[in-house]
Simulated scan of single mutants.
Amino acid sequence: MDSPAASANLERHRSAENMSDRVALGITLTLRVLADTFFAKRYGNRAIVLETVAAVPGMVGGMLIHLRCLRWMVADHGWIRTLLDEADNERMHLMTFVQIAKPSWFERLVILAVQAIFFVAFFLLYLSSSRTAHRMVAYFEEQAVISYTLYLAEIDAGRVENIPAPASAIAYWNLPENARLREVVIAVREDEIGHRDVNHEFADALTAAPIRQTG
């Protein structure tokens, strides 16, 4: 049982305060409906598709900020490393759930299509409004926290088998040798909470002091 403070952190939501926020939230909730329709309670398979999408923003944002800093010879204030670390972390989430859920060839094709479409869409969004892009990622992560909390509930209720954690996950998150799926989901959820807060902070920073978007 989570403490009141932990529960509040899990349920934290940033209200949309302007048109940029409302666009970001609207896109997020639309994609949430599609995910719920397609995957229902198959949370392992849902995680695979969502994590292949989640690994895109950090790489795109890091690349575009890197190029902007080169063109204008300005400091990045640590944003590049933070975003690339986020992308790598999300990639590790994907590789972990591939081992857990073992996607079919059809689901692998869906992953390829979703990633290609999302990469192009997010690239264009970041060029046009990096603030909106970061807010959208933060809202994505809010939904990811909800999804992983529901995943844990399914495990705790015995509706999802609490299988042994993959060795790669044990090594990556420094889990006990006898760790199981439940511990992996908790670790992943903690990562998503961090990404949520960082991207909200980045969006806030861009709201306060907009930077050149396309440079």
Rank of each mutant, 00 (worst) to 15 (best):
D191C: 04
D156G: 10
R182G: 01
E107K: 08
E183T: 06
E177N: 15
F140Q: 12
T132A: 12
I111R: 12
V160S: 05
D88Y: 13
A138N: 05
Q143F: 07
I186F: 07
N162T: 09
S104Q: 10
V160G: 02
S128L: 13
T149R: 10
A165L: 05
A165W: 01
L127Q: 08
V98Y: 06
V110K: 07
F122P: 03
E142H: 08
R91W: 12
M92R: 14
A169K: 02
S128H: 12
A169Y: 02
I163V: 15
R135Y: 07
E161I: 11
V160P: 00
R182W: 01
E190H: 11
A121D: 06
L109T: 13
E177A: 15
R196A: 02
R131S: 06
Q99P: 04
P103G: 06
T132K: 02
L175F: 03
I117K: 14
M95H: 15
E161G: 09
R159D: 08
E183L: 04
H134M: 08
V137K: 04
N89E: 14
V114I: 09
H93D: 03
S147D: 10
V145N: 00
V120H: 09
A187P: 01
V160Y: 00
I111K: 12
F97P: 00
Y148L: 00
S147K: 06
V110T: 08
S104K: 09
E141K: 07
A157W: 05
A153I: 08
L150A: 15
I155W: 00
S147P: 02
H195G: 04
R131G: 03
D88R: 14
Y126D: 02
E190C: 05
I100T: 02
D85I: 14
A167P: 04
Y151C: 00
Q143T: 13
I155E: 00
F119Y: 13
E90H: 09
L124C: 11
E141L: 04
I170W: 06
A138E: 00
S128A: 10
L150H: 11
T96H: 11
Q99S: 13
L112N: 08
Q143G: 15
Y139S: 03
I117E: 12
I163G: 05
P103C: 07
